Simulated scan of single mutants.
Amino acid sequence: MALSVTGLEACAELLYRKLLQRTHWRTQELARAVKCSAGEVAQTLQALRDEGLVDVSADDPTSFRAVEPCVAFPALLARAMFEGRTLGLSPVEADRFIALHERAAERDEGVARGSGGHRTDASSVVERMVAKVEKDVTFLVPGYVDGGFAFSRPIVDLGLRRGIRLRAVWASSVFDADDAMDHAQWLAQQDVPPRMADAVPVCAMIMDGAAAVVIDHSRTPRMVRPGAELESLCSLAERLWERGAEVRRLRRTPGTGAAQRPRMQMVLRLLADGLTDDAIARRLGCSVRTVRNDVAAAMAALDARSRFQAGARAMRAGLI
Rank of each mutant, 00 (worst) to 15 (best):
L160W: 03
R162C: 07
R162T: 09
G163C: 08
I164S: 02
R165W: 09
R165H: 07
R167N: 07
A168T: 05
S172G: 08
S173E: 12
S173W: 01
S173H: 04
V174H: 04
V174S: 01
V174F: 03
F175Q: 06
D176W: 08
A177Y: 07
D178C: 01
D178R: 13
D179F: 01
D179H: 08
A180K: 01
A180C: 09
A180S: 08
M181H: 11
M181C: 11
H183C: 02
A184M: 01
W186L: 09
A188C: 05
A188Y: 02
Q190Y: 05
P194S: 07
M196R: 14
M196S: 13
D198H: 08
D198K: 13
A199N: 05
P201G: 14
V202M: 08
V202Y: 04
C203V: 01
A204G: 13
M207A: 15
M207I: 07
M207T: 14
D208F: 12
D208K: 13
D208L: 12
G209E: 06
A210S: 15
A211F: 00
A211D: 08
A212M: 05
A212H: 11
A212W: 07
V213R: 02
V214K: 07
V214N: 01
V214M: 12
I215G: 03
D216P: 01
D216Y: 13
S218N: 12
T220F: 15
P221A: 09
R222P: 01
M223S: 10
M223F: 08
R225N: 02
R225E: 14
P226W: 11
P226H: 10
A228V: 12
E229L: 13
E229A: 15
E229I: 06
L230M: 13
S232T: 14
S232F: 05
S232H: 11
L233D: 08
C234E: 10
C234K: 14
S235M: 11
L236S: 06
A237F: 03
E238K: 10
E238T: 10
R239K: 13
L240S: 05
E242A: 15
E242W: 02
R243Y: 06
R243T: 14
R243M: 06
E246L: 08
E246S: 15
V247Q: 05
R249T: 12
R249Y: 02
L250G: 04
L250A: 07
R251W: 04
R251C: 00
R252P: 00
P254T: 11
P254S: 12
P254K: 12
G255R: 07
A258G: 05
A258M: 08
A259F: 04
